[in-house]
Nucleic acid binder design. Structure first.
Lengths: 191, 191, 191, 191
DNA sequence: ACGTGCGGGACATCCCGTTATT
DNA sequence: AATAACGGGATGTCCCGCACGT
């Protein structure tokens, strides 16, 4: 069965990258089309809803992949909440370093421009965030956290990592991720 | 005619507000001029460097005011690190709630669009962040933290609060600030 | 919809006319678009390089058409250099008169604003001029001039005609073209 | 007696230079004011008529100085029309070379943008040109030319020199001035 | 699914001329 | 005679969304 053209896929990947680096408003459709090498004429065939529809798909995909990463890490660190958090922080630090401190978070960048203006997109962003927090909370609970503390700690982990990306990009330094790992594992129960 | 008009001040205040709500690229000069009621013709008289120069001043002012707020809170909570952190989180939560979950952070929004692309602005953003972290670290040390731990904890506080704004705006909920207060005060030394 | 629209052609023709009357800087893109009736939205589709790219094409076209005119006149005056020069001067005088003494030369007008500032455009202008001088020199040689004198005389003919346009426009009088014809044919070999 | 401020003089000199290099429309008042170092606030005190009034004075001054140069050269070459023309051409070539092939003619540049649009300025340009041609014609007559031929030859000399500046700037080469000297002295009466 | 072209508006920037103040 | 500030418009550029035809 023929899979749908890769024009869609390439446009989505390029848009995600540019949204993470430049944000939503600063990224023009022209730039997305040019850099993705995808054809210009059929953009509105693939994305009838235009730039917002593309952003919606980017958000969903980015959210799902983030959740998958978390679950993958959780499986590798069964029962050890401290190790899990450290691994998660290091994953963020690695990506940041490898990208030359250029990659931000789609949720943060798009949310910072659209949150109060575009309810539908904001709901999607909230879902992405919620998915990550849930996945972390599930694992923390499996590691011995009480339900309420697990959810609370999970949300703080995500908040800290989100903010850490801003710090790391602006300071061009990834030590903040180590700091978070240290502080947020200080109270974890022994595995 | 007034010798020194308030056009500059009004433009800066409006720009700061809009940068916090919409980000940098999504905020047009026209919107700043219109909403601030400042004159159009003399914009480049007041800001010869254009939009970037205006952003630079916004960043510096925002950074300085943030530092002042932190130092003010520190004076009110002498010796009590836990109380200080809780007060700080509540200040963020209050502003977020009062703004209807619309106000983000200048550093986060501008940094998310400019960090890897505009070194001069990025340096200013880094200075603003550094000022906040320093001010917190100074106070934590005064509360009994060792120097290294004080700096580390201070940077995590800022990272968490930065990220919390993203969460709060997107989820339209300020409980994240309480979660941060709870988690980050779990290990503070007794006053 | 026509597969290949005439918007390009119309924009180029209008730009040439306006450059000849008003020069480059004084001619706005808006005026070109308005007067040519060509669509605004697709201007940068047709001329991705903007105003400069349009000027480059205008220069090339104007240069080529000038050369064609010269070669046409040369064919009509085989062996008679004096007649050729007189015909050429009269062609300039006719156009000047018919335009109500408004039409200058693209090379002169664009060159006067860009010559030292824009090397690429200047090179194109030089090519246009060189083409005209070459075409004249070739014909003069065919009329009995020695190679060196042919090239020299050709360049003087072009210089005089260029300057004559300035005189004619400013004085609203085309007698200068007759003066040039008289002076520059005083030394031509008999046919 | 106190002479009027040099702000006027500096503005006029700078405007003349910029008009010769860039033309009228491409030269902003801001640039004139900045480069001349003259105060901005009092520009409209010195030139109540604005940019056009300044241009008018530039033209008059440029025309008068050109006429003076011609008369000076004429005095140095009494009775020798051929030497006079050669000296004149060399003066143009020298200035062109010394300026790095950047200086055009005020009459040509301003006339090319304003001739059909601004009768008053055009009249001034015509007067400047007429003054030069007259001065040359007077001298040629003194060298033995008949009145009609003197006037005719004078106008061709000016036309050729005007056009030569365009060629020289665009080709970055001053040989055209030598060519003109050679061709236009081929028929001069012996001194 | 894709290239070409259109429509109209917004962008940051810079312009020239005029004020009130000194 | 110069300053600081304004008014409003124009600049070139680029945008997003949508037509066509293939």
């Amino acid at each position: 069965m023929a899979r749908s053209s890769d024009a869609r896929t390439k446009a989505l990947a390029t848009a995600e990258r540019l949204f993470r680096i430049q944000g939503y408003a600063a990224t023009g459709l022209t730039q997305i089309i040019d850099e993705s090498g995808s054809p210009k004429g059929s953009f509105y065939f693939h994305f009838p809803g235009g730039k917002d529809a593309l952003a919606a798909e980017v958000i969903d995909g980015y959210g799902a992949r983030g959740r998958t990463l978390i679950e993958h890490l959780a499986e590798q660190t069964k029962g050890d909440a401290s190790l899990f958090i450290r691994r998660l922080c290091m994953a963020f630090a690695d990506e940041m370093r490898r990208s030359g401190f250029t990659l931000g978070c789609v949720v943060q960048n798009v949310g910072g421009e659209k949150a109060p203006l575009h309810p539908e997109l904001t709901a999607r962003l909230s879902q992405a965030l919620g998915g990550w927090i849930d996945a972390i909370a599930v694992h923390l609970e499996a590691c011995g956290y009480a339900a309420v503390e697990a959810a609370q700690h999970a949300s703080v982990v995500i908040a800290a990592l989100e903010g850490a990306r801003t710090l790391a990009r602006v300071q061009r330094d990834d030590t903040i991720f180590h700091a978070i790992a240290a502080v947020l594992t200080a109270t974890t129960p022994a595995p």
